[in-house]
Design a protein around this nucleic acid. Sequence first.
DNA 1: ATATTTTATTTGTACTACATATTGATGAAA
DNA 2: TTTCATCAATATGTAGTACAAATAAAATAT
Lengths: 234, 234
Amino acid sequence: MNDIRFMDINDLSKDLSPIISNTMADLVEVRLREYLKKKSFKPGDALPKELELAEALGVSRNVLREALSRLRMLGMIETKKKRGMVLARPDILGTFERVLDPLIIDNSTLQDIFELRLVLEMGIAELLYIRKTDKDIRELENIAKKEINHDHSFRIKNEIAFHGKLYEMSGNDTLKRFQIMLLPIFDYVVTLEQKPTRGLVSHLDLVEILKTGTVEDFKKGMQAHLQPHFNRLT
Amino acid sequence: MNDIRFMDINDLSKDLSPIISNTMADLVEVRLREYLKKKSFKPGDALPKELELAEALGVSRNVLREALSRLRMLGMIETKKKRGMVLARPDILGTFERVLDPLIIDNSTLQDIFELRLVLEMGIAELLYIRKTDKDIRELENIAKKEINHDHSFRIKNEIAFHGKLYEMSGNDTLKRFQIMLLPIFDYVVTLEQKPTRGLVSHLDLVEILKTGTVEDFKKGMQAHLQPHFNRLT
DNA sequence: ATATTTTATTTGTACTACATATTGATGAAA
DNA sequence: TTTCATCAATATGTAGTACAAATAAAATAT
């Protein structure tokens, strides 16, 4: 029973090196990464052809292609029939998206992601005040006004639209995409817990603060808006 | 010249459906994902064997394995020699880490990530005040005290340690790991721009606020601490 | 010089064969 | 009967060959 695979992982994972990879494809993937880094290839640079790589690594073309398939999924390489392989720019969030499924993620991580979104909502204030424009605020106000006198399902859509617009106003596209990915997880956790989600500060209140208030005012307002969610934390 | 691949992507990417995938492995990967979701497999559940899947999908075992290799990399499945495949819990950040290389990421995204870290630093205040303990604060203070009278390289390490401890105090392991991944990018951008990075509020000041100040005080303090970085934004 | 066809090359897919590990069955010993 | 050791069956892992398909580059025709 002293097999390393059966030892308690939670206590040791921080001190031990990552679990050794069994398959050749795993090793080849690592080696290819090292190779790309060492040679400091840039996006657009051509890479050796499969047969050369396979021979150099001492593996079959089959195994090599399993590793390449991974890099291709991540967007690190692109291939064409005769041109061969070229290094590409991976979409850093695209890879993230593939794995963000509430039904697979463990509860602890779900909670972490829930909190992460709260952190983003609170931390976005500075960016907002640096970059907000009158046009943005008008559009945001229109979204907020629409939600009056509508049913529940519309409110949810509008909630998403409002906060989405906030991220858009932050001028940070990565952040915006990131929060869109986080939303389903967030909703999943909220729905799971069945708690009231309406804070004392409404969307229209937040718009008003954006118009005339300071960054600090906005932070307080957002905090109050999200208060029901913060109440869930311990 | 009306080839779709040569059209301006920036303007259209939002309106157009994602670029079609050329290879079978791409398609099989998608189909497998759909299959797993549709059947609502849970971690630990056994999956059909390769030959069955390959036959059902109408592809060679080779192509199937290229797709499986991707899922295996993401940690979505695990395989053993005779037991076959079982669904597993992917490490949502592990996949992210593979792609976070400053040398590959384009400048715009680097900037986004730089800002993302600032957003996290600012947004973490609430979590900190919900979960901080006296023990935490003492440890944080020790870190902050160490940095007095030391050379530059030590200061950088200490900077990392200090902020790392803050994330640890947030009680959110995902967040902590996330910021550790973001740090190299952050440093890369900072070094690139060669700007002074010392704010008016020191680490020790922040510790003092944590001891006796309010959440709002801490936010202001952190903002001042990061002011040099915020000054870079436009 | 330009347009067209041909050729060569590289990736994509399929199939076969065998190695390797591991489960589960079978059988031996207590 | 229980326990241990041995063996066979089976699913994945790896290698190799063959060919299809696309396309860049060369050769040819206009």
